[in-house]
Amino acid sequence: MAGMQNLEQTQVFNLARKPYNRDTLVNYIFTGTLFGVAVIGAIPLFSVLYMLITRGSSRLNWDLFTQLPPAGFMSGGGIGNAIVGTLVMIAIACLFSVPLGVMGGVLTGSLAPKSRTARTVRFIAKVMSGFPSILAGVFVYALLVVGLGTYSALAGGIALAILMLPIILLTSEQAVSMVPQRMKDAAFGMGCTHGQVVTKVVLPTAMPAILTGIMLSIARAAGESAPLLFTALFSNFWIRGLIEPTASLSILIYNFSGMPFPNQIELAWAGSLVLVLIVFAFNVLSRIIGRPRY
């Protein structure tokens, strides 16, 4: 108990900062380290953005969007077909993944959240969300490319849909389960059927959050390249049908990045700039839509 008779303590402590005190010094070093970590962590982003703007913007003109990719030693050209291809495949992916994902989310989030079915669906969706994206390509290759005998926009779109599906399902589930029980009770109390409660109350209320999830999944899919590599492959021509090899921005960047021609490398940078802008656009859109309205 010695040293605890603090009332008789006559020694007066100096409470002033002691800059060379070990604790203070170590604390400063720690703060400095964290600050350094944060700054170094931010450098790659600014470096990427700087490169995109300086290297990519030189080709940012009308031709970029309207011309086809150039062959070997040719100059000029654009990435028009790749932009169209990316958008077409995203549309196909949405066509499959949005209805499945949203309705799956309604099932696990609102209709029967605690049922065994819902638990199974949730589990599978979580497992799928952890699949490496290239496996979606492997699966669709085995299923569709081998089946149809050709690489196609359809196959690419479905590969993207497999990536988007768990994201949409899990965010929709989250959104739907956030709808307050009292709102649903009010609708049930007025004699709504379960189906009416879902279509008239739950879905409209949860819609902004559901759309946020969809936009985020599109942003993710737009930048994906691994699943397209051997499902959609690539094409130097405009898209004419859904059952033929189709160009996409990400594969164009991949193909052109390794080429020894400066023209193609410039186009790869320009394509990256466009791709990043598309991805950011969907990210921003998700934020705007997700803002609560009421």
Binding site: L45, M51, Y254, S257, S272, L275, V279, N283
Partner: peptide, 18 residues
């Protein structure tokens, strides 16, 4: 968040040239 949003191929391209 922006760091997370940049597509993997773009990082690849940046890796090759930077």
């Amino acid at each position: 968040e922006m760091l997370a949003a940049i597509p993997s191929v773009v990082y690849g391209l940046w890796g090759i040239y930077v």
